[in-house]
Computed example of a mutant assay.
Amino acid sequence: MDFATPIGIVLALGAVLTAIILEGSSPMSVMLPAPMMLVIGGTIGAGLATTMLPDFLRAFRALPGYLAFKRPDTTATVELLVSLTDRARREGLLALEDAARDVDDPFLRDGLQSAIDGMDPEDLRETLEARIDARRARDKVVAKLFTDMGGFAPTIGIIGTVVSLVHVLENLADPSSLGHMIAAAFVATLWGLLSANLIWLPIAARVKRVSEIECAQMEMVMEGLLAVQAGSSPRVVGQRLRSLAGEEESAKEAA
């Protein structure tokens, strides 16, 4: 599994806390319940207000899957599709009935079963493209929610600071407490900027990248299934699928 985003968020937050310590302060000086509650709660509430409740709940339920995403094994998928193409060419599509039941990828399994059942190639392409578009649209809704939250957080932090400064002005008669109160007032702004740039926006970018990888994988599988159905040459199919997967493979090798 690829835990780059959770690790990155932890490292970024750790850097902020380390800087606070090196400045001679205490991390607890920014761990104030009121501004944290206002910024985080206000950001989540504003995010909810921009979308529909089912979309909001679906986004947070799906979040662990995006953060613990495992890059699909493109090489194994290409080899499987090539072997299916070779077998279909030699024995016919009906011979793949048992192989379809052993496929783990539901998109590949359903598409292969549709091809075996005799679905027209154009209908098969349209059906698979519709599933890819649906997946892309769903991911877009999730990414937009977290992007919006990243935009709301700094402004809500400023609102928290203004609220705190109003309280400061109410206590001008007590100069000894003003320094602490003013410092505490700016904690809300800190959490607004911090949560936007170290949590919400990185999560939105992660969702977009996961969506790109999975949709590219699905598109490659779709082309492979159509080749299986058409009885194409296994060698040609392998070359085409490897070229389609080239960008993802290069990224995988560089990782």
Rank of each mutant, 00 (worst) to 15 (best):
V166P: 06
V162A: 15
M149L: 13
T127P: 02
I159D: 03
M181E: 03
T155K: 14
I203N: 05
A204L: 01
L190I: 13
L198N: 04
A173H: 03
L178H: 11
L124E: 02
A184E: 09
W200D: 04
M181C: 00
V163I: 15
A137E: 11
A173P: 00
I199E: 02
V187C: 06
G118I: 09
P154D: 05
V142N: 14
L169Y: 06
R131Q: 12
K140T: 14
A130I: 00
G192H: 05
A184T: 13
L198D: 01
R138V: 01
T147C: 12
D123I: 14
V141K: 11
G151A: 13
W200T: 09
S177E: 15
L178E: 04
A115D: 07
P121E: 01
P202H: 07
A183C: 00
R135V: 00
R206E: 11
T161D: 01
D123H: 14
T189W: 01
A134I: 01
G157M: 14
V166W: 04
D133G: 07
A130Y: 04
A173C: 00
K144M: 08
D123W: 10
I132H: 02
R136F: 15
V163Q: 13
I132G: 00
F146N: 03
D120C: 10
F146M: 05
I199L: 15
K144H: 11
E129L: 11
K144W: 05
L145F: 10
S195F: 11
T155W: 13
L145G: 08
G179T: 10
D120T: 13
S177G: 08
V166A: 05
I158M: 09
P175H: 10
F152R: 02
M181Y: 03
P154Q: 08
